[in-house]
Nucleic acid binder design. Structure first.
Length: 612
RNA sequence: GCCGAAGUAGCUCAGCUGGUAGAGCAACGGUUUCGUAAACCGUAGGUCACGGGUUCAAAUCCCGUCUUCGGCUCCA
């Protein structure tokens, strides 16, 4: 293995399963060399669910080659070679590299170019070690399992491409992915789990449950919401509006596009330009006008909100001021990055900008974090991580606003608040927004997919650029601090996440179709009774539908269950005569008959309380 | 954007090495009047992603484009 970025301490912590998988990567390389001796290897680490090895090879490895490679791997495992560690000097290692002897089965004409590069990047004084299994020798810090025979069960999973060291200026390598476990049972369980995960994929559920579509004529990454999807969005928006109202936010509204001048002022141009749709050129004074105005689709709401702040003179007594908007933003994401609802080009953000004095920062920041935690509780999210993203001082003026002092101050301030809050956080350099440090919230859906679901950003740049001020107690003009926050992220990503989180089995309050009423037969009196109940539900804003057709009741239930309708009212003659309904709940089955009024009251209460 | 793979009816998919497109479900019409996950019969539905080429003949082979997927980079 050859990932030089990890320290020796980190490697020592490699778990048993990681050692096994990393060893499997060496066996993979061994097998590939037996078939294609000219293969050049780069890095082959264990990853979350398996391992990979990056290889440079003229032959394009495809899944059809897997059988052949796996057969060689099996032979190597059966041979049960020991993994032998050897420590060598830097010069010895380089000499072997020049002979093509690293990550190979013997000397070769071509030097082991990636391995040589890796050696050259190992800091002075650090031990350089090699590992051998059979004829295969690789530059590797280890550790490994004792023998190749310890690799219990494995399978190659897919091929992808990756740039050497993840830099798009470097050559592209073929990345062969595989996974390995102690035994076949665990391997089978893993693949069974993957099958389960596929069923919960938001793209699959989004289609099956009629949530959204992405149409070629509309454009890639531009989802359209079907009524069932829009219903979920409406509920989320209602939740956000209630929560924000209670927390002292005020709602504002802004446009979807603006002149270039606005984004020059905000700094989006040039710092964010490649993520924005190209401008529209408009000749405002007729065809003969030689000067075109450039308009951009907004990528973020902040510049618009800053204008709203600036529109009226502000006093320290007005602060904190909290402007909220579910604004539509458009970003020109690279085509290869689009991914279902999770990565789109048009998004509706649960956005708000909070303007405050420095003294108010801590309490405002904490209040925002508390809002996050309340939401997580409501949705039953247990695993989350706050990623505190800071700037990289070497990229001031390029990726980040050139304000070294302000970066230092705001990062310090944010770090302190995070520390005092006791939240689970991790600091990552070089990932801040261009206008200030940020805290992204990572969550994991039940199928293990990781998302940045929400964001909480400090902005010291824009308030100055927009000349935002407030009159302080001492009669001087001061610049407020601004926090951008979006606890529910964007509708697109959040709904995508919820689909996977709930596997489409939404709680009643979020359910696209909350109640479906179905009759046993289509007797006229029964149809009337069902319609009456439907009207009563709709009068109480319950999303309900009636299935009055001539199908058998089993068929009606089947269709409702497939659409994951939360509650079903089954109505036959017996129910009608007793002014009752038979209640069936998705996932729970038949709950028996209940008086009509009681059944409806229960539905209304569950929705009102947003029960899980 | 880059590398690789894929695109057949509304959905899920079949269609072998070229001979002119098929099933199930859904839809529609009829029959059935039924108690908790699919009643029965029939009808209709496709520029095989799009454009070009090779061929007597293309869903099938070749080239280009679009889109999606697996990754890289990036992010809410």
């Amino acid at each position: 293995m050859s990932d030089e970025r990890k320290t020796p301490e980190m490697r020592a912590q490699m778990t048993e399963i990681e050692r096994l998988r990393h060893s499997a990567a060496h066996v993979l390389a061994t097998a590939i060399l037996k078939i294609w001796p000219e293969a050049q290897f780069a890095a082959g680490p264990p990853v979350e669910n398996g391992f990979y090895y990056d290889v440079d090879l003229p032959h394009r490895i495809s899944p059809e080659d897997f059988e052949k490679i796996e057969a060689e791997m099996k032979a190597e495992i059966k041979a049960n070679h020991p993994f032998e560690r050897m420590e060598v000097s830097r010069e010895e290692a380089l000499e072997m590299g020049r002979k093509g002897r690293l990550a190979s089965l013997g000397d070769r004409e071509q030097p082991s170019k990636f391995k040589i590069d890796i050696i050259e990047n190992i800091p002075e004084g650090e031990t350089i070690s090699l590992y051998r299994n059979g004829d295969f020798v690789d530059l590797c810090a280890g550790p490994h399992v004792m023998r190749t025979g310890n690799i219990g069960a494995f399978r190659l999973t897919n091929v992808a491409s990756a740039y050497y060291k993840g830099d798009e200026k470097n050559p592209q390598l073929q990345r062969i992915y595989g996974t390995a476990f102690k035994n076949k049972t665990q391997l089978d369980e893993y693949f069974a789990m993957l099958e389960e995960a596929k069923k919960r994929d938001h793209r699959k559920l989004g289609k099956e449950l009629e949530i959204y579509i992405i149409d070629e004529d509309v454009g890639p990454g531009l989802p359209l919401w079907l009524p069932r999807g829009a219903a979920i969005i409406e509920e989320l928006e209602k939740l956000a509006k209630e929560t924000e109202f209670a927390a002292g936010y005020q709602r504002v509204r802004s446009t979807n596009l603006a002149r270039e001048a606005l984004y020059l002022k905000s700094g989006h141009l040039p710092y964010y330009k490649e993520s924005m749709f190209p401008p529209m050129e408009v000749h405002e004074h007729g065809e003969e006008d030689s000067v075109a105005q450039r308009y951009y689709l907004k990528a973020m709401n902040c510049p618009h909100h800053h204008k709203l702040y600036a529109a009226i003179p502000r006093s320290y007594r007005d602060l904190p001021l909290r402007f909220a908007e579910y604004g539509f933003c458009h970003r020109y994401e690279q085509s290869g990055e689009l991914f279902g609802l999770m990565r789109v080009r048009s998004m509706q953000m649960n956005d708000a900008h909070l303007y405050m004095t420095p003294e108010q920062f801590e309490s405002e920041f904490n209040a925002v974090n508390e809002m996050y935690l309340n939401y997580f509780k409501l949705f039953g999210l247990e695993k989350y991580l706050m990623r505190f993203s800071t700037h990289d001082p070497t990229k001031l003026g390029q990726k980040f606003l050139d304000e070294p002092e302000l970066w230092k101050q705001t990062e310090e301030m944010t770090r302190n608040v995070l520390k005092n809050s006791g939240l689970n956080y991790e600091e990552v350099p070089n990932e801040a927004a261009f206008y200030g440090p940020k805290v992204d919230v990572q969550v994991w859906s039940v199928i293990g997919r990781e998302f940045t679901i929400a964001t909480n950003q400090v902005d010291f740049g824009q308030p100055r650029r927009f000349n935002l001020t407030y009159k302080d107690k001492d009669n001087t003009e001061k610049t407020p601090i601004c926090i951008h926050r979006a606890p529910l992220g964007t509708h697109e990503r959040f709904v995508g996440f919820l689909l996977e989180h709930y596997a489409g089995n939404f709680p009643l309050w979020l359910s696209p179709e909350q109640v479906r009423i179905m009759t046993i037969g289509d007797d006229a009196a029964l149809v009337d009774y069902a319609r009456k109940i439907g009207n009563e539900l709709r009068a109480n804003f319950v999303r309900s539908d009636v299935d009055l057709g001539t199908d058998k009741i089993n068929g009606k239930i089947q269709r409702a269950e497939q659409m994951k309708v939360h509650t079903m009212f089954v109505i036959g003659k017996r129910d009608m005569e007793a002014d009752a309904v038979s209640v069936r709940v998705h996932g729970k089955g038949n709950l028996g008959a209940k008086p009509r009024a009681e059944a409806i009251a229960e539905v209304l209460l569950s929705i009102k309380e947003r029960r899980p």
